[in-house]
């Protein structure tokens, strides 16, 4: 691979690693403070014990913010795109399973399509986030616009 990746250097199927993050109550607390999202789902055990959703489903513990997972997923793109390879233009995520304190989540990416438009060179990337049990907790479609 050349030092700075260009559109022509990357083929469909190219895989790239993303962050591996150990999620703790402390991290969730810090994200709540930094993002100003203090929803009790992220810190209040008593609230979770008495709160049910459809089908009498409950969460097992406080849950990490979906947007914390989103933010970690963006790192899987910016860590290799910035500053010289390209722009991280879009990320669409689906949060499939709760992320709990004690989970270790890992993001992996793969280029699944590449297209040139009139003014741009684009890579479509699939992101997958799994936990330590191998369960998929989130998936994402990301778009990178390459500079060269």
């Amino acid at each position: 691979m050349p030092e700075t990746l260009a559109y022509q250097d990357i083929d469909v199927g190219w895989q790239f690693p993303g962050p591996k993050v150990a999620v703790s109550r402390e991290m969730i607390k810090e994200f709540a403070a930094a993002s100003f999202d203090h929803n009790p789902l992220h810190w209040d055990d008593d609230y979770l014990a008495e709160t049910t959703f459809a089908g009498h489903k409950k969460f097992d513990d406080v849950i990490a913010h979906g947007l914390m997972t989103y933010a970690i997923m963006t790192r899987a793109m910016t860590d290799w795109l910035w500053p010289d390879v390209g722009e991280h233009r879009r990320l669409e995520t689906r949060f499939r399973q709760p992320v709990y304190p004690g989970d270790e989540i890992e993001v992996r990416g793969q280029v699944v399509d590449k297209r040139e438009t009139k003014q741009g060179r684009w890579l479509v990337c699939a992101l997958t986030v799994t936990n330590q049990r191998g369960e998929t907790v989130a998936t994402g479609d990301a778009l990178a616009e390459l500079l060269a």
């Binding site: 999202d37 947007l67 669409e92 689906r94």
Partner: peptide
């Protein structure tokens, strides 16, 4: 960071904004 907009959802809105309702679960973005 590109996800900094998470912060604006709360910083730019008042206490009565519906995103602050306890129990709001983010499904996708």
């Amino acid at each position: 960071p590109p996800s900094v907009h998470a912060l604006f959802l709360f910083a730019c809105t008042d206490h009565d904004h519906f995103m602050r309702t306890p129990g709001t679960v983010n499904m996708g973005q």
